[in-house]
């Protein structure tokens, strides 16, 4: 019997299981995890245009083999999408993020975020998003680049992994 301590919980397991558990853990946390994380950030920052797989591994300083393995891994995890593309007479993949990084940018200066009256704010009451002057001011102060900012350098800047 083995006593396994996992965070602050512990449990006993049969000896045969222990090897499975450690083997699984090693699979979950490979050394390459760091590189994977960097790759994910890199792909996410490319926004809707995606990035060529070859650009990815060059940027990461990895080999093409590592690059493609990481890309496959990320695809398996459902984090990116790969599309075949002919580049300079060679087949490669273009990588697209499935999810864009969560960024607070688009609502960071919205008055609703810190509004004291939030609990009382409702379309049917006196304090309402329909007539809120603070909200009107915010809407009028929005610049028209709003929807274009997605995937643009400005949007990506905040997500720089370095």
């Amino acid at each position: 019997m083995f006593l396994v301590v996992f965070g602050d919980t512990y449990f006993y397991v049969e000896s045969a299981h222990i090897f499975n558990v450690t083997a699984n853990l090693m699979m979950v946390m490979p050394k390459r995890n760091d590189l994977e994380q960097k790759a994910l950030h890199f792909v996410m920052n490319t926004g809707y245009n995606g990035v060529l797989q070859s650009e990815l591994w060059r940027e990461l300083g990895a080999s093409s083999r590592e690059g493609s393995r990481i890309a496959i891994k990320l695809e398996e995890k459902g984090l990116i999408r790969r599309e075949k593309e002919l580049e300079g007479g060679r087949w490669t993949y273009r990588l697209f993020p499935k999810r864009l990084p969560a960024s607070i940018e688009s609502i960071a200066d919205c008055p609703c975020l810190l509004c004291q009256d939030n609990a009382r704010c409702d379309p049917t009451t006196a304090i309402s998003p329909k007539s809120c002057a603070k909200l009107t001011d915010w809407i009028l102060s929005l610049n028209n680049e709003g929807s274009a900012a997605l995937g643009e350098p400005d949007f990506a800047q905040g997500m720089d992994p370095r």
Binding site: V5, G7, M44, L113
Partner: peptide, 29 residues
């Protein structure tokens, strides 16, 4: 009986999509 201590750091194994800059922006907001 063998005591095996596996300390799993929270963020390991999980691919986070949030970085410090975003954290600071949230703090500022």
């Amino acid at each position: 009986a063998l005591l095996l201590i596996i300390s799993v750091e929270r963020n390991q194994g999980m691919l986070s999509t949030i970085d410090d800059a975003t954290l600071m922006k949230v703090a500022a907001a």
